[in-house]
Design a protein around this nucleic acid. Structure first.
Length: 471
RNA sequence: GCCCCGUUCGUCUAGAGGCCCAGGACGCCAGGUUCUCAUCCUGGUAACACGGGUUCAAAUCCCGUACGGGGUGCCA
């Protein structure tokens, strides 16, 4: 039995899109599920658009998500010789040819064809040039690219694990460029050569590449390799409302989710469920559970709409599932940037514990504890909460009673002032928002009794009196 | 335009001819628990795109139409 080898092969031309991450994830899952090898291959054949920054970013994001690779990163830009040698071999065998048409000419012809209602595509102008004709064009100073000659008839067919048999008429696929006039190889060529050289056994990628597979396979065949890797084209991820997932739907890069307080395991869990699910219907899963249950054959055929709401819910589930110490370390960076030197670790850990059951993002957790690290005189009271508190019936009376209680009570971790309120004949539940406003600056937040306990008697009294003074 | 792929609640999905007048989850709505908010619990809402076949029987198979997505690049 041959070793299973998969690769994730992004083009480093920008941030890593959510859709690309899902592709990386599925490749990684399949590799881990069967004990295969996961390879990272950077497809930077388009030198003009590729950036080192993007190469670095891809790796950072994959580390953060836990998608560790076993080989690579291999850079295609370091293997141009291999691709160009393959191209030369194809030209020698008359399976590819030198093309002297300029980009502008090709573009113009395509537009012309569209206007006349004919299908666009390269017309084969340079297919059968004689040596003299080639020399003449070269003498004119025309640029030279290399085109692969596709069959004029017949059908191209391959089997897709997810979709079954996929086929297309060769007549609809015109000759395509495999080496640009600037001498750099194109995706189809590099992809075909590398998948052979790196002994890739399974190709998992987005449905948008389904048509290109015919071309890659034809190249592979022309280069003398009739064996094929297993292909699986996964459904695309759409934005809310259909169409491409884009900025206006919220974040589309992993960094944005990381910075918004999402846990990597929540993101991978949610993304794994977009197009796949275990057969028992469970949804909140650990990575190990997903690896154990992942089946390529169970991947869906239809595209899925990205739902930020469900992701947020799932993030909350994973926040609750994390052991407290691990949640604490995840929230810490967010708290540091917010509270800096004022951060008190003891209070911080307790606050995270109190917030764990009620938050859906790490940012929420960090924000909810703001009142603990803000000096009494700098507490900003939320306007809406203040208005509600000041308009509440008997607010002054209630605050006076609570102040008196806090002044004299025995101090413990949880200070419960409800008796003082009940003594006035008032139901505590209805007026607690007044106390939350005084202590935390908002009508709701971390549990009040613990909050007062953490703040201490003096600080709590200053805050209660400050609000009393504003009534 | 042409080619490819797809189509079950608003969204993610279960469903591989009878178990389905379609199940779960998110969201939403209504109750309950609770010191607030949230969590949590209970209940409710809501779908087989359409039209033809095949079959004793179709969400499930076939054909067509509509709709959606992708491709048609010297991007990947």
């Amino acid at each position: 039995m041959t070793q299973v080898r998969l690769r994730f092969s992004p083009a480093p031309t920008g941030f890593l899109h959510i859709g690309s991450v899902r592709t990386a994830l599925y490749n990684w899952l399949q590799a881990r599920h069967v004990g295969g090898t996961f390879i990272l291959r950077i497809e930077d054949t388009d030198v003009a658009r590729s950036t080192q920054e993007s190469v670095d970013q891809i790796q950072q994001v994959m580390h953060w998500l836990g998608l560790e690779w076993d080989e690579g990163p291999y850079l295609q830009s370091a293997r141009f010789d291999a691709y160009l040698a393959a191209a030369a071999k194809l030209v020698d065998a008359h399976l590819a040819y030198e093309c002297y048409c300029t980009e502008a000419e090709v573009k113009e012809r395509n537009e012309q064809a569209m206007r006349e209602g004919r299908p666009p595509g390269y017309g084969g102008q340079c297919r059968d040039l004689t040596a003299e004709e080639r020399a003449a064009r070269a003498a004119e100073g025309r640029p030279v690219s290399i085109r692969f000659r596709t069959p004029d008839e017949g059908r191209s067919t391959f089997t897709d694990v997810i979709r079954g048999e996929v086929s297309v008429d060769w007549s609809t696929i015109s000759d395509f460029v495999i080496v640009r006039s600037n001498g750099t190889p194109v995706f189809f060529l590099a992809n075909a050569v590398d998948d052979v050289d790196m002994q890739i056994t399974h190709v998992l990628r987005g449905e948008d590449l389904i048509d290109s597979t015919h071309r890659v396979l034809a190249l592979r065949h022309a280069l003398g390799h009739d064996d094929q890797p297993v292909y699986a084209h996964m459904p695309l991820i759409l934005g809310p409302g259909g169409g491409k997932l884009s900025k206006r739907h919220g974040a589309v890069s992993v960094e944005e989710y990381r910075d918004a307080g999402y846990l990597p395991e929540a993101l991978t869990n949610y993304l794994a469920l977009l197009g796949w699910g275990p057969d028992d219907g469970r949804e909140v899963l650990t990575v190990d559970e997903i690896i154990a249950e992942f089946e390529l054959e169970r991947v869906n055929t239809s595209s899925a709409t990205f739902d930020p709401k469900k992701l947020e819910w799932m993030n909350g589930e994973h926040i609750r599932a994390r052991p407290l110490p691990e949640l604490v370390s995840a929230v810490l960076p967010f708290a540091r940037t917010r509270y800096g030197a004022r951060l008190d670790i003891g209070r911080f850990e307790r606050a995270v514990e109190l917030a764990q059951v009620r938050a859906t993002t790490l940012v929420q957790i960090a924000d909810q504890m703001a009142f603990l690290f803000t000096p009494d005189e700098e507490i900003e009271i939320d306007p809406a909460s203040l208005e509600k508190a000041t308009k509440a019936e008997r607010a002054a009376e209630i605050l006076d009673a609570v102040i008196e209680f806090v002044e004299g009570c025995e101090w413990t971790a949880e200070i419960d002032p409800r008796h003082a309120i009940e003594a006035l004949g008032v139901k505590p539940g209805k007026v607690m928002h007044i106390l939350y406003t005084a202590i935390e600056g908002r009508g709701q937040g971390l549990p009040l009794f613990d909050s007062i306990g953490m703040l201490g008697r003096e600080s709590s009294l200053r805050r209660l009196r400050a609000l009393r003074a504003r009534l």
